[in-house]
Design a protein around this nucleic acid. Structure first.
Lengths: 247, 247
DNA sequence: TTGGTCAATTGGTAAGACCAATTATTTCAA
DNA sequence: TTGAAATAATTGGTCTTACCAATTGACCAA
């Protein structure tokens, strides 16, 4: 059995931090000299670990510019989904249905497990959401809010699945959430729902949080598909009138 | 366009030599000091290249023992998330926890939506499970049973996610399910639970099906692990605060 | 011939210095 | 006041030198 080197141990530690969401896709790692100091290792040993992660595509490194976490791990889950949804656009409602389940569970565990740090992050994310109302940042702030809840659930698989789903949304493969913010009444309603989810999580009420998140997602799902139903109804009414005239 | 570093160039050169057969699978590379001399580079720069190739699995390195060419070039590349998760066994409970959620929901929708064809497939899968008791096919029949339920849910995202989870299981991420079949009492209990899940689905009782599937997964989870999961979660929450521990 | 010990070899770690590229800050001109 | 250019600071990349840790090979005794 091969002995584990220091560099292997550093690599494992950095991987853990990335998998657990301490560093997210797009995040920049601390400078090498600082990180080596924090981990109490020499810079060359740290560099070995960083180079290993770069070779695997998990980090991207630029001379003088820093080391960045890539979205390689998220893509490994998301890419097959993207491909499948591209071929089968009729499954978009399956995504929303899945999200009802996923968001409810994230909120449940977040209410149980959120640390002080998580609660702070959640409040900040909500504040950002409030401040983004009416701007083109609103949908992004929405995603951030939901991802913050997933992080607070402290279940890695949930977190990565959520990231993969949001990757779909960013590709506009699944119904674009951004569209529903064009209506001010809807936007305000969504904000109330987000607040309610946050409050139930902060109050440590898992079942309430689950319910709040599920109701929110059901509302989103219905809002996104609601316009279609209206049109169909109007078409039907017109056809009925036409029949009466013919008689 | 990022400038190519010296280490990148050395990596490319070594890869070329391997691809062209200068060094074949099983061959040992010259010692680092000698190879650095031949390539007219410093040893640390060469080491960067060697570590990159080791990270890709093209080389295998042993302290004091040399660098050896593997036969990786002839193999397919593993999913990066699966590979990383398999190195971090502390994530296995997250997978099991996620499975409680997933299996419960699959069973719920299967009970609502199963076609005559689905019901037939489910019964066949259960029969196969019964017939596999005591054989080495038992765990495979278990997976097949659960995938059949996912198919009957008629949500393609759920199905795809279930397949991804079983891909993790195949890598022994979540403590090989096969292991729990070694105990006859457990095996019999699992069969009763599987039967109960099937019956609730066939009877079209979504909430009962959800409960049955969740209880089954909770049983599996508890059988596979003890009280370790509490500790691990607390450790993880601590890490999230950004505090870095020494390696 | 086999097993143990020691020396040599080779990969791993570290400190320190310097180079190359990027980022941030300051200065200057319009 | 604003924008562009120049300069300084920061940060990743390369190198030399030294030393540690693990493996391999040579040698000797039983």
């Amino acid at each position: 059995m091969q002995q584990q080197t220091l560099a292997d141990r550093i690599t494992a530690k950095l991987e853990t931090m990335i998998v657990e969401g301490v560093y997210k896709p797009g995040d920049r790692l601390p400078p090498e000299r600082k990180l080596a100091e924090q981990l109490e290792v020499s810079r060359p040993s740290l560099r070995t670990a960083l180079q290993t992660l770069a070779a695997k595509g998990i980090l991207r490194s630029r001379q003088g510019g820093g080391h960045y976490v890539t979205d390689t791990l998220t893509r490994s889950v998301a890419d097959p989904l993207v491909e499948m949804l591209s071929k089968h656009p009729e499954t978009q409602d399956d995504v929303l249905e899945f999200r009802v389940l996923l968001e409810g569970t994230c909120a449940f565990y977040a209410a149980q497990r959120a640390t002080e740090e998580d609660r702070k992050s959640l409040q900040e994310a909500f504040t950002l959401l409030e401040e983004s109302m009416g701007t083109d940042q609103e949908s992004q702030a929405d995603l951030t809010f939901h991802l913050t809840i997933a992080e607070a659930s402290h279940n890695i698989i949930l977190l990565h699945t959520m990231r993969a789903i949001f990757s779909l949304l960013k590709h506009n493969i699944a119904s674009n959430i951004g569209g529903i913010y064009n209506n001010q009444e809807t936007s305000t309603q969504l904000l109330h729902q987000h607040r309610h989810i946050m409050e139930t999580i902060l109050a440590g009420q898992p079942e309430q949080a689950r319910l709040a998140a599920e109701e929110h997602m059901v509302y989103v799902r219905e809002t996104l598909s609601g316009e279609d139903r209206k049109q169909i109804r109007q078409l039907r009414a017109k056809r009925r009138t036409g029949l009466l005239e013919a008689i």
